[in-house]
Amino acid sequence: MSGGGILGVLSCRAGRLPRAALEVLGAAQQLRSTASSSIAAVLVGAEVSPVIDTLAAHGVDSVYLFEDDALARCTTEVHVRAVAAVVAEIRPACVLLPDSAYGRDVASRLSARLGTGLATGCVSFGATASGEPLAERTVFGGRFVERVSWAGLPRLATVKLGIFGVPHAEPGRRATLQRREVARDARANVLSVEHSEGSGSARPDIEEARVVVAAGRGFGSAEKLHLIEELADALGAAVGASRAVVDLGWLEHQHQVGQTGRSVAPDLYIACGISGAIQHLAGISSAGTIVAINRDPEAPIFGVADYGIVGEIEEILPPLAAALRERPVGRPEAGE
């Protein structure tokens, strides 16, 4: 990998830096060739100064700030112009963004603006035998992994969330601060923003959720399903179901996992009392981590799970929910 700085494009909301931003910095650490390659960060928005120290502590050497209240109402084009200006100024070798709505928006426009390639959803970085940087990403519903390289500079990449760790914090580390300005775009503006954090009872939809807990026939009857609901509450998860459970009328059709065509791809999938018929498994093949809980040690689901517990649902689920509740697990954070 040739030397050259890395620029991380981050965003924060209300003066707080989301975990996603720190993961981008973690990815930057993995990507840089030598400890002396510099890492810069660019932030565009209102109320962004409070996070500078956090950035510095996590390895950022210089921060480029575009800070203005009006920027809270700006759409992608303005952010792209700001980032492009920094790119022109510091000429980084790589530009990293989170693989979030924001990150993909900015990265794709940037790619067209700069005329260089963008790899989205990268899960790791490496190099060819001759030292050319490579990124790995999953394709076709997670069934295949492709390795890609870039033809030109800067190399653009969005970093899949929940994969790269957060770098160690060195409190007291310093970063240089550069303030910049960018003009607004009258053609587009953000009218309103509603967040869902702390928004109470609604469970996420199974296809969108980060965590899915699914119930199968191993529950034995509809009356026992409260166990899965308690587990879902402890995790902030969506509740899924095997087809048999829906056919038996224990849960409604919208909970059914798999087979209707598109798979669910949560980071974490906990299958409770599900034997693991291949059609169900086809629906969860892209799940990050699969946990199986079943009384039958020979159940096919243990063939694909990462973690397995052989036991009775009634005996495992309550202590599991309790252990999860002990340190409260927050809702999925802003992925910006």
Binding site: R243, V246, H253, Q256, Q259, T260, G261, A277, I278, Q279, A282
Partner: peptide, 15 residues
């Protein structure tokens, strides 16, 4: 059967 079925590509709108 379930494994073999996956190789048939059979699929129906569930609802």
């Amino acid at each position: 059967r379930a494994t073999a079925l996956a190789a048939s590509g059979t699929n129906h709108e569930e609802d």
